[in-house]
Design a binder for these strands. Structure first.
Lengths: 339, 339
DNA sequence: ACCCCTCAGGTAAGCGCTTTCCCGGAAGGC
DNA sequence: GCCTTCCGGGAAAGCGCTTACCTGAGGGGT
């Protein structure tokens, strides 16, 4: 394992010079020396120890990202956006999957803090659990107090920058579309109730119902996991519970796809008998039959913007945390028709 | 930013003692002292600097993973498996997206080497590009010579352990299924030609053709990107080129889904007029209409096994690199019928 | 009563870099 | 021709930990 000192010895210079050359620091160095050092680096196959560099250097470089699950297309899209911006800025990204477990999320914050990452990005956080939220908040504040930057994708409930998807408005868009099409018996396939994404989207749906003179009660709502299987199960439940059902609103596309599968299995025609609307506009939504109507969220862009926030110089505005919104838009395709 | 020394001072002990306690080293420490130190840690909100620890310690901990693209479901599944095992072993995973760019892949190997990760896992590597392969190989060997472990998912063409998916056999399974159903004019939607995944799967398809007394020539093959859009484009191309076409074999499911979309658009009935088979058995394959026949690869399991290989003690077998295979199996669903 | 062993805890030498400060020589000004 | 100014390069002090080695006190054996 060649070290900086080995290279210096080999090239007959001091370690300071080698360091300056491999980091091409502003300090000028004679061309001849530079070449000699570079040759020594190549001969010895020297790879600087990033841990030592990090320790000796003042500034931080890598960015840590905590997501629920990269294999979920929702987060995969966001992650893609995050990486793109990070790579463009020459930053290393450390991705951590919390698998929706708040404790693991907490542990990862510690871990990234310990590694002195330049920033921590929380994607899809937000739990309805006061003790957890408080602990998370404490940890994030501590991290910030040591110079780390924090960016959150989701609700703005922690110190730090945030990019906030219009979940409530999106829910309203979905509900409004359905009611406007004449549906009155609308079932809602919701995600886990302890996630704020669920409650925010649900709130929008509720508001839409009220706007059209209806009410969304517990009977109309089935909670399940934010995935295909959860969607299928919830759809089955609602079908049993709501005899006159003519429309289903799922709080994300994976669940909507699961619902579609469930309906197909039972011989219920979509959209003929039941209309279905999803949320997120994931790639899959145009590949199912019928093509899914949904509420679009610019996921990759959200990722890019979050990384930009995380990377911005703390200097450029001592004006506190920045909060940006990401617009939800309605995308009507083939799975919704008027009643 | 509290340091170990601060904690030591606060608790009135030496740094050695603090270090021993926070790492609960085997060296015994009086209970009273331990409590005092832990109290100081809590008061000062001390978070050890992982870089310093890494530098001072002999052993390495984190594992680096280089994948083509986490937002691709194929890699998302694999990554999921990798993480699971890593987390179970208390290891941090650093995920790097190469976006299928060999140069970036090379750069990431350096980066992970620099960070002195315990292991590097290459997922989906394999380029038909001798210079690149040679450079990659050199870098990996150097990394290994410094004590790093290497595991590759894909062809076993580098030093280090490997888990090898049966790509050739899988291709044969797909081809055999099609020919057995009576198809003779089979078009192949292939991935980028510089990827070994493409050529391996293609080779299997070729062998199946020969086994059934047919030949797969350039006319029958369209190369495109391994995604939905690529599949659609390639399908369009083959449709134009092969008038009598009755079956399409895509080298992954994303492309197959793209092909399905293209065929639907042109009013070609699947499987009535054209049968379609995919590869990988991604989640989406059961959600499209018709449900996709495909060749299944146990992706998550592959990830788990790769991580296990990467984590195994170098000691347990000085018997050189381990090579394991991952079986491909045929999954017939609704998109293939006999002619 | 003396010696040796045990064991909790401290001392200090690194780990591999970066960077401040300093030095000596060459160049420029008068 | 002498003094000042630059400028390339080196010495060395950390960065925040871990750990091999040492110390001193108490306990048991003879």
């Amino acid at each position: 394992m060649a070290t900086l000192a080995d290279v210096a010895r080999r090239a007959g210079v001091s370690t300071a010079t080698v360091s300056r050359i491999i980091n091409n620091s502003p300090k000028p160095v004679t061309e001849a020396l530079r070449e000699r050092v570079l040759a020594a680096v190549a001969e010895l196959q020297f790879v600087p120890n990033a841990n030592a560099q990090q320790l000796a250097r003042a500034h931080r470089s890598a960015v840590g990202v905590i997501v629920h699950d990269v294999s979920d297309p929702y987060f995969a899209e966001i992650t893609r956006g995050l990486q793109r911006v990070a790579t463009d800025n020459g930053r290393l990204v450390i991705i951590c999957n919390s698998y929706r477990d708040p404790e693991r999320e907490l542990a990862y914050v510690d871990l990234l803090h310990a590694h002195r990452t330049a920033a921590i990005i929380l994607a899809g956080s937000g739990y309805h659990d006061a003790p957890i939220t408080a602990r998370l908040d404490r940890k994030l504040r501590l991290y910030q107090s040591t110079g780390g930057r924090v960016a959150v994708i989701g609700r703005h409930e922690h110190a730090g920058d945030a990019i906030v998807p219009e979940n409530e408005h999106g829910g309203w868009l979905a509900g409004d579309a359905l009611y406007r099409l004449g549906h009155t018996a609308v079932g809602v396939i919701a995600g886990p109730r302890h996630l704020t994404t669920t409650t925010d989207r649900l709130a929008g749906l509720r508001r839409a119902a009220r706007d059209h003179g209806h009410r969304l009660t517990t009977r109309h709502i089935a909670y399940a996991d934010f995935d295909r299987a959860g969607g299928a199960a919830a759809a089955a439940e609602l079908l049993g519970r709501l005899p006159g059902l003519t429309a289903l609103a799922a709080l994300n596309d994976s669940m909507a796809v699961g619902a579609l599968a469930c309906l197909r299995e039972r011989g219920v025609d979509v959209p003929g008998q039941v209309s279905v609307i999803g949320f997120d506009d994931m790639p899959i939504s145009v590949d199912v039959t019928p093509r899914l109507s949904t509420v679009r969220l610019p996921l990759e862009e959200i990722g890019q913007r979050a990384m930009s926030l995380a990377l911005r110089e703390p200097a450029d505005g001592r004006d506190g945390p920045l909060v940006e919104h990401a617009a939800a838009t309605l995308v009507l395709r083939d799975s919704t028709v008027s009643r």
